[in-house]
């Protein structure tokens, strides 16, 4: 029997912690979670955030960024996007991958008059435009499947943040694939169906009679808050978990021609090679070595040194 967990919290950090907590601790039932996030960017577990997100822009836009525990690329969410999660048992010999989770979602969309079809391995699309991206996490004998449903998202809002930085990144990290997307609301037969109505239609399709809703206990919520605090909001997880990468740039810094090569491992500058005929490179190298590859921390660091103000801009 499937149970329903309704997260009324719109924080992506909290909602990812809810998922992970249920995935790791509540083994006896199958679960469906429905959740909505305030505007945020969510990168895949094994992505290099610096390759995907323009880190300088994050605070300016008041948007939250985090890393999820499933695979795949970078997505953005807002309040017009419905997230769904299934958590259930996993048997390698008869695991179909995505179909067992996507088929019921596609069926209910079709019943609403939407010509939704499975696309690629794990997307749902209308024609060639994506409306849902999906990813999974497998641990022991459990699988967590989650996906997005773009109902009425502001699709242009966060494009600036996804703009790549200027230098050249090299890594074996998972890369994002840009897809052309569309909102479900533009394809509905029933024009009166709003976000809440859409959410109810999805929910009711999984429960024949009564919805078996699980209320998380205070003790559960305490542990979820702990997971949020010790993992999902931390620099170490969001930035530091990025796979090892090399950053290269050859450019002009305040009239000095500078070549830089950084190797960043676990979020820290492990190697730093600078070439310049006019700057004292050894001093800068020793300054940067071992330091966190964080735009704001490096900005502070460089701002205190004469002639090196704004050098952090050069490193991202």
């Amino acid at each position: 029997m499937m149970k329903y967990v309704n997260s009324k919290n719109n924080s992506v950090h909290y909602n990812l912690a809810v998922e992970e907590y249920i995935f790791n601790n509540m083994m006896d039932d199958d679960f469906l979670l429905l959740w909505v996030n305030d505007p945020c960017i969510v990168i895949g577990k094994h992505q290099n955030i610096f390759e995907e997100v323009n880190c300088k822009e994050i605070p300016k836009n008041g948007v939250t960024v985090t890393r999820r525990h499933s695979g795949g690329g970078t997505v953005f969410h807002d309040n017009g996007n419905l997230n769904f999660t299934f958590i259930t048992d996993y048997h390698p010999d008869r695991f179909s991958g995505y179909d067992e989770f996507l088929s019921p979602i596609i069926k209910i969309l079709n019943e609403m008059g939407i010509a939704a079809e499975k696309s690629k391995v794990c997307d749902i699309a209308i024609g060639d435009k994506k409306i849902s991206g999906n990813a999974q996490s497998i641990k022991k004998n459990r699988v967590l499947h989650h996906g997005t449903l773009l109902f009425d998202s502001d699709l242009d809002a966060l494009r600036a943040i996804l703009k790549p930085a200027e230098g050249e990144f090299k890594s074996k990290a998972v890369k994002s694939v840009r897809s052309s997307v569309t909102n479900i609301v533009d394809h509905l037969g029933d024009k009166k169906l709003d976000f809440d109505g859409f959410r109810d239609r999805i929910l009711n399709s999984f429960f024949e009679n009564e919805i078996d809703e699980v209320k998380l206990l205070e003790a559960d919520i305490k542990q979820i808050r702990e997971l949020e605090k010790t993992k999902y909001i931390t620099w170490e997880w969001i930035y530091g978990f990025s796979p090892t990468f090399t950053y290269k740039k050859q450019s002009d810094f305040k009239g000095h021609q500078v070549d830089v090569v950084l190797i960043v491992e676990k979020g820290k500058i492990k190697e730093c090679k600078l070439k310049s005929k006019t700057l004292s490179v050894e001093k800068i190298e020793s300054l940067l070595l071992g330091h966190r590859y964080d735009y704001f921390a490096l900005s502070d660091l460089c701002s205190e040194i004469k002639d090196l103000e704004n050098f952090a801009d050069y490193l991202f």
Binding site: H69, G71, V121
Partner: peptide, 27 residues
Amino acid sequence: EIETEKVVSEVESQESGMLEAVYFEAG
């Protein structure tokens, strides 16, 4: 951990001992 088609799978050791050699790197 393995990632394939956006699925992250944690692979547990079936043995106890010492990791002697690895033939591949992340990615």
